[in-house]
Amino acid sequence: MAQAWRCAGLSWTADGPVLIWDGGRRSALTWGKTVAFGVAEGEVRTCVGARGNACPLGAPVPARSTGARCEECARLDRAHSVAADTLADDPRPYRVYLAWFGPGMTKVGITAARRGPARLLEQGAVCFSWLGTGPLMAARRTEELLRAALRVPDRIPYAAKRAARAALPAIAEERAGELAALHARAVALSGWPESLDPAPFAPVDHVAAFALDRAPAPVGEVGELVAGGAVSGELVAAAGPDLHLATDRGVLVLDTRLLRGWELVPAAGQGVAVPVRALKERTGAQDGLF
């Protein structure tokens, strides 16, 4: 019987995307590499637990869930996150950023300064710029200021980000244009926390890092994994948790969050034998209410 592996998610390093496996094994992903795996017959997807702890119930989770956690573990995981405001005494510096995902789609967020741009790569930000650095609560107050004064959201559904990548301007300066205007409006606001040091506008573009400038446009996406199914394709691009794979059905987007919770084995054949669906089309411009 082939050895099975459990995927712990996709991480981004200075050298590109890396698949992380339970136990600490890492698989670097390079352009042109074949990504191939299957799910054995009879397998059931189970909860991945929370904060490094296994789910005490080993609860089953839906195949289409990107969180791969049962309700209780999802609650525990979020309760200890920066977003839950439970780490007010964290002494480490944090950065506020502005991120752009496509025409008319921007957001504000915060990340630990020690992580550098990793958070932006993980989110699939096409372009970003730092806005300022300071203590966690000062960064949080700045984020809230932009949400209230400029109606800039702090979250965007990932399906919307994926759809926005289908219509990116070809010129980097055009991709940075909306961020430049938003940055100028943000630093002009009154009410900034005194402990947050503003950062000048300095856009960072990820189109080349994601290989979106040379990869064929995707024609669909993997909807879910299933017992007995398999996926095999050549990696041509990646953005956030998404891998763009050239397959026998054309280029498909695989959200690696769908891998978590499954026991994965080497693929026995070539091609894609899981449900595939058309990419969702973008429905309209951002309205600040995400």
Rank of each mutant, 00 (worst) to 15 (best):
R115I: 09
T30V: 12
P157F: 03
A217L: 15
T30L: 01
G284P: 12
F201V: 14
L136C: 14
R119C: 03
A50Y: 04
Q123V: 06
R141S: 09
S11F: 02
P91L: 13
S195W: 12
A68W: 03
A273I: 00
P157N: 01
P275N: 00
V274D: 04
H80S: 07
E234L: 14
L245Q: 08
H80T: 15
G102T: 01
D85K: 10
E224N: 01
L87G: 04
S65C: 06
A83P: 06
E71H: 13
A112P: 13
T256M: 07
L131C: 10
V18F: 06
G134V: 05
D242Q: 10
T142D: 02
P157T: 00
L182N: 01
G233W: 04
A238E: 02
E122V: 10
A186K: 04
I171Q: 13
R75D: 14
R69D: 01
T86L: 12
K33Q: 14
L252H: 06
W12L: 05
T66R: 11
A164Y: 05
E71V: 13
R282D: 08
G229D: 07
G269N: 09
S232F: 04
A215P: 11
D248Y: 11
R175E: 03
A14L: 08
T256E: 06
G177V: 04
F128K: 03
K161Q: 03
V219E: 01
W262H: 05
K107G: 00
R64H: 15
R277P: 00
A148Q: 12
P93N: 11
F290Q: 13
A40W: 02
A2E: 12
G220Q: 08
A246Y: 00
G288Y: 00
G49N: 07
L136R: 09
V236I: 11
C55K: 09
A167N: 13
L145P: 08
A166Q: 15
V265S: 08
P153Y: 07
A267E: 10
A36T: 11
C55R: 06
R51V: 03
V187F: 00
E71K: 15
A209V: 06
I171M: 13
G32K: 09
A159Q: 10
R26A: 10
G24E: 04
D22S: 14
F210R: 08
K107C: 03
S190W: 07
A170M: 14
L146Y: 15
G58D: 00
P193K: 11
E281Y: 03
G67W: 10
D15E: 15
P103Q: 11
A167W: 07
V265C: 01
C70Y: 02
C70F: 10
E122G: 05
F201L: 10
A36Y: 03
E234H: 12
P241V: 01
R141D: 12
D15Q: 14
A209P: 11
E281L: 05
L279Y: 06
T142M: 10
I20A: 15
L29R: 00
E71T: 13
D255S: 02
K161D: 01
E194S: 14
K280D: 01
D242K: 02
G109V: 08
A83K: 14
G250P: 13
R115L: 10
G250V: 11
A54M: 02
P117A: 05
G284N: 05
G284K: 06
A238I: 00
A8P: 06
D213M: 08
E281C: 02
P135W: 12
M105H: 15
C7D: 01
D89E: 15
L29H: 07
A170Q: 09
S65E: 11
Y97E: 04
